[in-house]
């Protein structure tokens, strides 16, 4: 899974690209947290763009909540956008959207 970020008008866009499972999550976590440390202080909010996520299992729930907590330390709210139908169902049933709304 590749992760890249773009900051525009104090909004941090974090784009995930590839498959998110237990195996790929470790590196994704490290990369996303580096981005948080670099950009969070100058961001008003962070939006995780899932449009290029080709697969996500329940690992994605833990991943997103973990990043939510990370950004929360900087007072930066987190949103998700463009989940696939499958991912949407997982995030909906696990209640992730109550913490991390859809942008």
């Amino acid at each position: 899974m590749r992760i890249c970020a773009e900051q525009r008008d104090n909004v941090l866009y974090v784009r995930l690209n590839g498959e998110m499972d237990e195996y790929s999550a470790a590196l994704a976590r490290r990369d996303a947290d580096r981005l948080a440390e670099t950009y969070a202080a100058t961001s008003e909010r962070a939006i995780f763009d899932l449009s290029k996520v080709s697969f996500m299992d329940s690992t994605g729930i833990g991943f997103l909540i973990g990043r939510y907590k990370k950004f929360q330390r900087y007072g930066v709210p987190v949103y998700v956008t463009n989940p696939s139908a499958g991912t949407d169902r997982i995030l909906e049933m696990s209640g992730v959207y109550t913490l991390i709304p859809k942008a």
């Binding site: 999550a25 976590r29 299992d57 329940s58 690992t59 729930i61 833990g62 991943f63 909540i65 973990g66 997982i90 049933m93 696990s94």
Partner: peptide, 10 residues
């Protein structure tokens, strides 16, 4: 470990 505990439910 950032585990969701949702595996079996899914």
């Amino acid at each position: 470990d950032e585990r969701s505990g949702m595996g079996f439910t899914i």
